[in-house]
Write a protein that binds this DNA or RNA. Structure first.
Lengths: 231, 231
DNA sequence: CGGGTGGTTGAAAGTTATCAATAGCTGTGG
DNA sequence: CCACAGCTATTGATAACTTTCAACCACCCG
């Protein structure tokens, strides 16, 4: 498979990598299409590959022993995912599902140590990536510890609008199908509570809801709720 | 300052490092004593150094704009901490306070990139460390999303007993001063609720409390609460 | 021995989950 | 092309859990 480096050149992960190194990397990659609803890998599976999302959108979920699900994170184009080996584990800690048709590059996990030894800068970049993810996780912990549900949902929605927002007339649309259940699983609450909150916001003209759809109409208003509480 | 490599040789972080590399590393390190209650660094300060805890115990906390505090993690001997640069940020995201008198090694942040370029294996090790931390964070998010407070507290106490447990006759003692407030800040609840829960456990003979003190008397019983709920 | 920090506990209030019933969209198949 | 199945969403009522408020206790340190 021949993958042109123009495909990934713009990604910050490969910022300072030489063309030669990049070509070598891509020479070992496989491109793969994931239809909507399919899983790239499942929780508990042996970690055979690690991935880079080129196009589309994935959600990474975990299921607890008692069957409850949470969304660990949303994967956006340009993100690395499934790098279990770097986390010193042999199986995937979660399931990655395509919420829209997606395209990802993959490399065999065995190559990972080789990669980083070969190219220390990639190691540094990846470390930064994981570091950012750690910070996000801490932010989420902080929010869940100290904030009431409405503020958490507001933060989650604003985050989505930043990462997957598509400006259109009169608002910002979240550019992939997202259900109340999804938002609940991202904020640690139930779909009922999310539904109530969104209904209330809609009544105030802050957002516009719909089936697997969400458009932010009043960014400032939402921000206010996220920041300090009631508006 | 001369630091013998025997001081850190046993740590897994330096597992496969040569004596020469290790000596070089230690040649650039500064050892520092932190009295109980003092901070090694504070949230928002410019990240001038990164650290390795040799002895003692630290807690890393964050304060939200509205003054609420949470404990991000507890630092145990052998742990790296304050590696903000690796997370691509110039300031410390939290405050590290000694809960017992502690000893730490420190290196100037500037040396970090040098270190990892020089010694790719260290980069891999560190990445694994951060990876584990990320996993811990996700575990915590999962718990806070799906479990009621009592189970979360049980998990937190069990974790502490694993990381800082000291076996003594008839139980496992948490080997550093810990308050109800601390446990509350680790589990996202209030000291009142923690106090009630611990009182109930004490009545059932599961633990023995006290001022800044905690001894686990019935590990199996606690584990049961952590796993499935009510016993 | 007095003050302060850390801890306990009751009562009331509030938030969020749970239970339950209904409505509405979407896509599939007769 | 319409109807039905199934999933997604809405919403009221109730219950449960946790926080908040308040008062009090006890231990440790200076």
């Amino acid at each position: 498979m021949k993958i042109d480096r123009s495909v990934v050149r713009s990604l910050s992960l490969f910022d300072r990598m030489s063309d030669a190194d990049l070509d070598w990397l891509l020479g070992h990659a496989t491109a793969r299409r994931i239809p909507q609803g399919d899983a790239v890998f499942e929780q508990g599976q042996a970690a055979a590959s690690f991935f880079l999302l080129l196009h589309g959108r994935l959600k990474v979920t975990q299921v607890t022993e008692d069957g409850q699900q949470i969304i660990v994170r949303v994967v956006h184009p340009g993100d690395l995912f499934g790098f279990a080996k770097a986390l010193q584990r042999s199986d995937y800690p979660g399931t990655a599902t395509a919420v829209t048709e997606s395209i990802a590059l993959s490399w065999p996990t065995d190559l990972w140590p080789h990669f980083v030894e070969q190219n220390p800068h990639l190691a540094v970049s990846t470390m930064q990536t994981i570091g950012q993810r750690l910070e996000e996780a801490h932010t989420r912990i902080r929010e869940m510890s100290t904030q009431e549900v409405e503020r958490r949902v507001a933060h989650a929605v604003l985050r989505l609008s930043r990462q997957a927002g598509k400006h259109e007339q009169g608002g910002i649309r979240i550019d992939f199908p997202i259900s109340r259940q999804d938002i609940a699983e991202m904020t640690g609450t139930t779909l009922h509570t999310v539904s109530r909150i969104l209904s209330a916001w809609e009544a105030k003209g802050l957002v516009e809801g719909g089936r697997q759809k969400l458009v932010i109409r009043d960014l400032a208003g939402l921000t206010q709720i996220a920041e300090s509480g009631r508006d």
